[in-house]
């Protein structure tokens, strides 16, 4: 009897040990608090998220909620991430897509190893190419599916030592090449035209010298100009602030002091 009990405890312990690394599987990685997805869609997406998390040891999650209140969506998502203990391993590696349906706000936040994998450009691409076009048309399942598949690709690239970024994004590379071609072409054409125009207008002006005088500055005697009042009165001060955009050519991830990187907006 003791042997049976020992065997049972051993099997139980082994099972628990096997389950430990997959912390994320302790709860669903897709949380639909609004009911945007059908049961089938929900399970399929959750399964996919779990597979990706297990494979790459970086937790990918989707949280949909009704109303986050007046808080900043990015800050709210970070608090949520911390409060519900999202993330894989000690450094809490992960990527969370957070949606607030009332305001139609979204945030993508990354933590730990997720910051390495999902660069600023990577998060921009996830949002602009895969999420916004579909979420904007209320195609949530399609959008989430594309999003998860893409995160898997990014994780694979990072695993191979080349995280998805400006310098590894083929679409961006082609776009930059195209853009710089047109800029160079414009410089090639417009700059010479401008220089030639300036030089020719100088010579052209020499041909027309019979011009009326508009001023009488030559007829002011020395000391003929006297200021009797000269005041510069301060009225008020205005302040404008603008976010310093990271140069698109820089690449990398901007990580805040809280260890998160993120992107947010409306869909």
């Amino acid at each position: 009897m003791k042997r049976i009990a020992a065997l049972f405890l051993a099997i139980l312990s082994l099972t628990l040990i096997m389950l430990l690394p997959v912390q994320a599987a302790e709860f669903d990685l897709v949380s639909d608090g609004v009911g945007m997805l059908t049961d089938d869609e929900y399970f399929e997406l959750n399964e996919l998220a779990m597979d990706i998390t297990e494979q790459f040891q970086c937790e990918v999650s989707i949280v949909i909620m009704d109303d986050k209140g007046s808080d900043d969506i990015e800050e709210y998502a970070k608090s949520f991430y911390k409060e519900y203990d999202y993330g894989y391993g000690e450094d809490k590696s992960g990527l969370m897509l957070f949606l607030s349906m009332e305001e139609r706000d979204y945030a993508i936040i990354a933590c730990g190893y997720g910051n390495t994998v999902f660069t600023d450009h990577g998060k921009d691409v996830l949002a602009d190419r895969y999420l916004l076009p579909t979420l904007g048309e209320d195609k949530y399942y399609t959008g989430f599916l594309l999003y998860l598949n893409q995160t898997a690709k990014f994780l694979k690239m990072a695993e191979n030592g080349a995280p998805f970024d400006i310098d590894t994004d083929e679409v961006q590379i082609q776009k930059n090449a195209k853009g710089s071609f047109w800029i160079k072409l414009a410089i090639c054409i417009l700059l010479p035209l401008l220089i030639a125009g300036i030089i020719c207008s100088i010579f052209l002006r020499q041909m027309k010298t019979a011009v009326s005088q508009k001023t009488a500055g030559n007829y002011i005697p020395e000391g003929g100009f006297n200021l009797t009042l000269q005041t510069d009165r301060f009225l008020f001060r205005t302040e404008t602030r603008s976010k310093i955009e990271k140069k698109s050519s820089d690449g990398g991830t901007s990580i805040g002091s809280d260890g998160f990187s993120g992107k947010s907006g409306k869909f």
Partner: peptide, 25 residues
């Protein structure tokens, strides 16, 4: 300031009074 570029614009009311002598225009 941080990751922001701050532009403070000061607005002034400037007054100039005086006279200019012109001879034989």
């Amino acid at each position: 300031q941080g990751d922001e570029r701050v532009t403070v614009t000061e607005h002034y009311q400037v007054e100039r009074q005086g006279n200019v002598v012109f001879e034989k225009v």
